[in-house]
């Protein structure tokens, strides 16, 4: 390649970079058009640059990153200083400032750290699948709040609310830890679910072995596939569950086999925005078996209520009341 060719290519890339950046005024455009018209080489080099730019939009790796951590419109700081808003928008702005600070000192290491300490929140009814920076896959059920911290030595996840399923990337050097309400689950390469239930936080193991411990109690047990451990008060209780129905919400389905109605309602409230309230405590312990798609939740509540011989009060804009 000749030096001149390199120069022309470089110029073409510079023009393209300028053009796509947003602030391309009339003067610049005139200069650009003049440059492009100057020689067929210029036009060809620029066409090549545009072709590369067009292909970039389809890059799986760039898009995966945007899928996993989409930039919210609110995250981009506004151009002008505006009146200070209160509440969550202030939080969002602090988040944006923090993100700005992190990006400001981008080094190869810093880019990795963008994933560190990230908080993920799903809305009621929203199910989200994502890859953590260690390669582990996580699925978040509706109304779930989770923070993850991934460093060279630590893989730590904290669930504040909700229900999450983890397919942990194998790494014996870094134990993968999930904490929820005094319960700790540790694994090096397995698949398991951690969720909040009315009885207490619960771990359900699909593959491999998970070490479950309770904070303060010093009780530790190993759970294998099909085993379910619940922290009730300060004690760990072990029971079994049907592996075939492990975290069916990942596939937009809810499955309950002989489950207490209180547990069913707790889970329904992760997907049904109006919410369900049980007004008769006697119903909480009733056993329910049902299987339906997440978006069929309203109809499912009707039929479950009917089967139990209970009454459903549904008023638009308010939570369903079962009594």
């Amino acid at each position: 390649m000749t030096g001149r060719e390199t120069d022309v290519t470089e110029q073409a890339m510079q023009w393209l970079a300028l053009r796509t950046g947003g602030a391309f005024d009339r003067d610049r455009r005139r200069t650009f058009e003049a440059w492009r018209a100057e020689s067929p080489d210029h036009a060809a080099a620029y066409a090549e640059a545009e072709a590369l730019w067009a292909r970039l939009a389809w890059s799986p790796s760039l898009n995966s990153r945007s899928l996993e951590r989409p930039i919210a419109a609110a995250e981009v700081p506004p151009a002008r200083v505006r009146a200070r808003r209160v509440g969550t928008s202030t939080l969002v702005r602090w988040g944006a400032i923090a993100a700005g600070l992190v990006l400001a000192c981008l080094t190869p290491l810093a880019v990795e750290r963008l994933n560190a300490g990230r908080e993920l929140v799903t809305e009621v009814g929203e199910i989200r699948h994502l890859t953590l920076s260690d390669g582990s896959r996580a699925s978040l059920a509706g109304a779930t709040r989770m923070t993850s911290l991934m460093t060279d030595h630590v893989r730590a996840v904290r669930l504040a609310e909700g229900d999450a399923y983890f397919d942990v990337a194998h790494d014996t050097g870094r134990v993968f830890t999930v904490r929820m309400d005094g319960l700790k689950a540790e694994a090096v390469g397995t698949a398991f679910e951690v969720r909040k239930t009315p009885a207490g936080p619960q771990v359900l193991v699909s593959e491999g072995r998970v070490r479950v411990s309770a904070r303060g109690a010093g009780q530790v047990l190993m759970a294998g596939p099909g085993e379910r451990v619940t922290l009730v008060g300060h004690a760990l209780r072990r029971s079994r569950f049907d592996l075939a129905s492990a975290a069916p919400w990942r596939r937009q389905r809810l499955v309950f086999v002989n489950a207490p109605f209180a547990d069913v309602v707790a889970e329904l409230n992760r997907y049904y925005a109006p919410g369900v309230v049980v007004a008769s405590p006697a119903l909480d312990g009733r056993r329910v078996t049902a299987s339906f798609a997440v978006d069929q939740t309203p109809q499912a509540i009707e039929s479950m209520t009917q089967e139990m011989g209970a009454r459903l009060e549904r008023v638009p804009g308010k939570a369903d009341v079962v009594r």
Binding site: T20, G21, G22, A23, W53, L56, A57, S59, L62, N63, R65, S66, I71, V76, P77, A79
Partner: peptide, 9 residues
């Protein structure tokens, strides 16, 4: 390219 942000943003 993917997020479509301007350089100012």
């Amino acid at each position: 390219r993917i997020e479509g942000l301007t350089y100012a943003e």
